[in-house]
Every structure is written in C-alpha cells, then in structure tokens.
C-alpha cells in the first residue's frame, strides 16, 4: 500500500516535471519543445524552453524542497499542525529587507533581491529565537510562535509604511509579494544552493528526533533525546530552508503549511516518512501551480504564489472537514 502510494507520488512529480518543460503561456508544440531540448529549435523556442522554462523548473524544485521540509520541521517542532514556515516571521523579514533595498538603495535587480531576502529571513529568525527563547525554557514553541507573529507584524507594518510612501518600492513589492519562479537564472540559483543543501542535511539528521519531540518534552527526554539540541537544529534548518525558498521565489504561501498534511494523510505519522514525502510532494505542488499559472490567463501569466493558494486552500479545507486525525 505504502509503496503503491510512493509510486503515485513519484509519478506525479515526473508528470509535472514534463508539463513544466512542455507547457506555457507560449503554446509551443511538444515536438518543438523536444527538438529544442535536443539542441534544435529556433531563436524563439530556445529562449522560451532553455531560457525560461528550464531555469524556472529548477527554481521550482529548489523552492519546493525547501518549503516542504521546512513545513514538516516547523509543524513537528511547534506540535501545531497550523504552523507555517512563515510563522517565525521569515516572509515578513524578507519582504522588509527587500522593501528597504528598493526604497533606500534603488535596488531593482532580482539577483540583489535574493540576497537581501535571505539576509532578512536570517535576521528575523535570529531575533525571534532570541526573544522567544530567553529565560528558563529554551525555545518554547508557543513563545517562539508568538514572537514570530509579533516581529512579523512589526516588520510588515513598517514595510507597508515604506511602500505606501514610495511608489517605486510599492510597485516592486506588489510583484515580489505574488511570488514567482521566473527570472532566477543559474547565476542567481547556484550561490543559494549550499544553504539549501545544508538545511536538507540538518533535517535528515534531525528527523528521528522529531518523532520523540512529537510525544512531548518529557517523553522525549525519557527516551534519551536531547530536546534542546533538536530544537536548535530545527530552527537552524528552518531558517536556512525558508530563507532560501523565500529568497528564490518570494513569499509562496500554503506549500509549507499544506504539504506535510497531505504527506501525513498518505503515509502516516512517522516524521521520517512525512519528511521524505514532503520532499517530493512540495516541488510537485509548486510546479503544478506554476504550470497552471502559465496557461490560466495566457498570453499573460499568473504568478505562482497566487496559484498555490488556489490549489492549496481547497485541499486544506477538505482535509480539515474530513479527518478528525488532523486535530491536535
């Protein structure tokens, strides 16, 4: 049963990968796409397939892997199935630094956005961690969540203020806010990759500890788990992953929240299985959303972040309606 489901998941990923290369706002025939991938095609098809679709597919996979894993980690960490990786204020932090870059330093280039966003994500998670974990209990999930919401609110207020008083910043941010996989060529992608890989590596190492954590701190300690260490590792991983995803694609909502739910529904409650499944499911979801966004309003495109909400929200609502298992 589990293997058959794993087969479906892998099949779905392969299918959207093909779709992502073959389908777009510019309806090239499959034959032309195939020809272009083999090195043929004309200037237009080369631009569309190798210049646009290949890099955006790679970006989508990277952002998906990061969001899927970050979502699983944060939900296990907070023991809150509602937790979204953005709950630690990462999106708000990234948006803030990008807005500052546009408003005060006249930044326009997406390559610059990536690093600013990454910096913002890192700084905010650090601040959330410092505020949320000072005192007796280190990294108490509820307090961290509250700190994340609070800092996120402060920053989003400042960001809105900045953009409302600066039309250039507003214009740049309303695009960035929608989330997009376009325009991130390999020159932008490659430098971010080490952070993504580091985050994935930490997640894999920490995965067994997540099961212990899910049972509560006391049980986890009784089982010999180092709760404090696991928590710190999870936060480092979430920061790296979420920072990478937001830096690459902007604030893509819903993937990190929803994918672990689907994974749990398909493969049960073992965190290792959820982690592995999320790693496959999240890129599938992002690429599918991207493909839908490309064809929905052709010749224009709908940014991927808008579509993820449309794909994700109904699934989440269905899950909430059908299963009692989702309740805490």
């Amino acid at each position: 049963m589990t293997f058959r489901r794993l087969g479906y998941v892998l099949g779905a990923l392969a299918a959207v990968l093909l779709l992502s290369l073959a389908v777009g706002a510019n309806m090239l025939s499959p034959a032309v796409v195939l020809d272009t991938l083999r090195g043929g095609g004309d200037a237009q098809s080369q631009y569309v397939v190798t210049g646009l679709r290949v890099p955006r597919t790679v970006t989508g996979i990277c952002a998906g892997v990061a969001l899927g894993i970050a979502g699983t980690l944060i939900q296990a960490f907070t023991r809150n199935p509602l937790a979204d990786p953005g709950i630690l204020g990462v999106n708000a932090g990234a948006a803030f630094t990008v807005a500052v870059g546009v408003a005060f330093f006249g930044l326009r280039d997406i390559g610059g956005f990536v690093w600013l966003a990454f910096l913002g994500a890192l700084m905010v998670t650090l601040a959330v961690y410092v505020i949320g974990s000072a005192g007796r209990a280190p990294a108490d999930p509820i307090r961290l969540t509250l700190a994340g919401v609070a800092i996120g609110a402060v920053l989003s207020g400042i960001t809105t203020g900045l953009t409302l008083s600066n039309p250039d910043a507003f214009d740049a941010m309303r695009g960035w806010n929608a989330g997009s996989l376009l325009g991130r060529d390999f020159g932008v992608l490659l430098p971010v990759l080490p952070f993504l890989l580091a985050g994935v590596a930490i997640a894999i190492v920490v995965a067994p500890g997540l099961n212990a954590l899910a049972l509560g701190d006391d049980v986890a300690r009784a089982q010999g788990a180092n709760v404090a260490l696991i928590r710190v590792a999870v936060i480092v991983a979430v920061t790296l992953l979420c920072g990478t995803a937001t830096a690459l694609a902007g604030p893509i909502s819903f993937v990190g929240l929803m994918v672990p739910h689907v994974a749990r529904w398909l493969f049960g409650v073992d965190q290792r299985a959820i982690l592995a499944a999320s790693l496959l499911l999240a890129p599938t979801m992002i690429l599918l959303a991207d493909v839908i966004g490309r064809v929905l309003i052709a010749p224009a495109e709908m940014p991927v972040g808008i579509v993820t909400a449309f794909v994700g929200a109904p699934v989440l609502i269905l899950l909430a309606r059908r299963s009692r298992a989702a309740a805490p």
Partner: peptide
C-alpha cells in the same frame, strides 16, 4: 484551519 485556508486564498486574490 478553514479560516486560514480561505484567508490565504483571499489574500492571494487581493495580491492579484
């Protein structure tokens, strides 16, 4: 849960 879902949906509509 449902509220978060619909809210996120609406917020995307707004961005759009």
């Amino acid at each position: 849960i449902v509220g978060i879902g619909v809210s996120a949906l609406l917020s995307s509509v707004n961005t759009w």
